[in-house]
Write a protein that binds this DNA or RNA. Structure first.
Lengths: 119, 119
DNA sequence: ACCTTTCATCGTATATCGCCGATGAACGAT
DNA sequence: ATCGTTCATCGGCGATATACGATGAAAGGT
């Protein structure tokens, strides 16, 4: 599922969506909390953070929609769980982007690297 | 305020700021373009994308403020350059978070698979 | 001098985010 | 049936993000 089939545009969109989900400190904290304690429910996260239950529910929704968290919608207390594969895939996507930029920079400075010399 | 994380708070904020900067497809595209072509100026990016010059300038500003891009403010044509070390650092921070979550998940499933963590 | 190019910034309009309280639904217990 | 608990969703409010055009400043060419 974390696989993007064709163009890089789709992959970009998937990556930016995931990064957007992790671009808020509260959601990063939620992710760590979910990974630390199994069988996490919304109320559990609410108790750990100091936010309203509706706010936490929305943050969880963002993480779920980004594919980084699985939810088992049990009526009494929904179980939230980190999708470690999706998280690893997102990390790998960012690592690929980083490596692309590094390679491009290195190829410029090693092969010709003419136009960036003066200062 | 749960100050459970004293030292990691700053690191979290840095990471989320960087991820926030990369959470927009246009900025990812800008980053790739900057790494590919040296001596990139704003107008160059404008020509590559189909956005107004002011919009591109703002996106560049976001990348600069996140520390992912260096700018040499030459008046005629400011030079933008990817800070590959900062980008690598951000990637590493995300990789650490991912590893933390994976380790926590593995320790739960291997040692004690207790799921009923109800209060 | 004048004009062009390039860029940053301002102002504005729209959309989304982040937070909250309130509400209703689903389930267990009494 | 009546509570109590848990959770998702709605509506609202303020703040931020995204996009644009317009403007001004700096440097170079005429």
């Amino acid at each position: 599922m974390p696989r993007s089939l064709s163009g890089a545009c789709c992959a970009h969109h998937t990556m930016t969506k995931g990064l957007s989900a992790l671009s808020h400190p509260v959601r990063v904290e939620i992710l760590k909390h979910l990974s630390g304690y199994d069988a996490c429910c919304c109320k559990d996260v609410v108790r750990h953070l100091h936010l309203a239950q509706s706010t936490v529910s929305q943050h969880l929704k963002v993480l779920v929609e980004a594919g980084l968290v699985h939810v088992r919608p049990e009526r009494q207390s929904s179980r939230y769980e980190v999708d470690t594969e999706a998280l690893a895939g997102l990390t790998e996507a960012l690592a690929r982007l980083t490596q692309t930029c590094i390679d491009a920079s290195k190829s410029r400075t090693s092969s010709h690297g003419a136009e960036a010399n003066d200062q």
